[in-house]
């Protein structure tokens, strides 16, 4: 009788094991059916971003992975740059008090009369979007924020994506990890990526 009991227990165990295996397998199968062999990373859609400033503070890293990127192709090389100067400045000079950027991360270089090139110093930029706001409302909008993937640790859920009031951050394929203005159109279908 003791043997029978052991046998019965073994039988229950193997049945349960099989059930568990089928359950896990089924779950995995269903997930594989919806999977994508590629990897994805987080990126900001510059056409959705409303320059709220949270990118500077919400990243899990102490130095935000978000920085300003300059799409030179779209830049007007303006003398009076809406992203560089504080609104209402009269002297278009390079002194820090005239600059919009709180860390003076934008470098203004004279090219030829009357054009200037604006270069972002990556190590100074904190991703606050102040310049982006200026450039977008008064200029061509060539300055915009992107998540830089040499800094980003690719969180399972981007902390900024959750905090972003405009839902501007979404997953993009890792082999095409940037949404640089001018290189993609805002209505590009987001096919397999989601906007959780």
């Amino acid at each position: 009788m003791g043997d029978k009991k052991v046998n019965r227990r073994d039988f229950i165990n193997s049945t349960m094991r099989l059930t568990a295996a089928v359950a896990v397998g089924g779950l995995a199968g269903m997930a594989v059916g919806k999977s994508n062999s590629g990897q994805y990373v987080w990126q900001i859609d510059p056409f959705e971003c409303t320059q709220c400033g949270r990118c500077a503070t919400e990243c899990v890293l102490s130095e935000s992975a978000v920085k300003c990127v300059h799409a030179y192709d779209l830049c007007g090389y303006c003398d009076l740059c809406g992203g560089y100067f504080k609104p209402g400045v009269k002297n278009l000079e390079t002194a820090a008090e005239y600059q919009l950027c709180p860390t003076a991360a934008i470098e203004r270089k004279f090219i030829e009369e009357p054009y200037f090139e604006y270069v972002i110093k990556k190590d100074l930029c904190i991703g606050c979007a102040k310049c982006v706001a200026g450039c977008t409302s008064f200029g061509n909008g060539s300055l915009h924020l992107q998540i830089l993937h040499d800094i980003c640790v690719d969180c399972n859920e981007c902390a900024i994506a959750r905090a972003c009031p405009s839902d501007a951050i979404r997953r993009v394929p890792a082999d095409d990890p940037y949404l640089i203005k001018g290189n993609f159109s805002p209505d590009e279908p987001a096919e397999w990526v989601n906007k959780s």
């Binding site: 990373v41 990127v69 300059h70 799409a71 030179y72 192709d73 779209l74 830049c75 007007g76 090389y77 303006c78 090219i111 030829e112 054009y115 090139e117 270069v119 972002i120 990556k122 200029g139 061509n140 992107q146 830089l148 993937h149 040499d150 980003c152 690719d154 890792a174 990890p177 940037y178 640089i180």
Partner: peptide, 22 residues
């Protein structure tokens, strides 16, 4: 595009945005 991209006379070549790979 509010301001057209200028045509440079000095042979300036425009840099491309910095996009490090993941």
């Amino acid at each position: 595009q509010r301001f057209p991209k200028p045509e440079f006379e000095t042979g300036y070549s425009q840099p491309s945005p910095d996009t490090p790979e993941p």
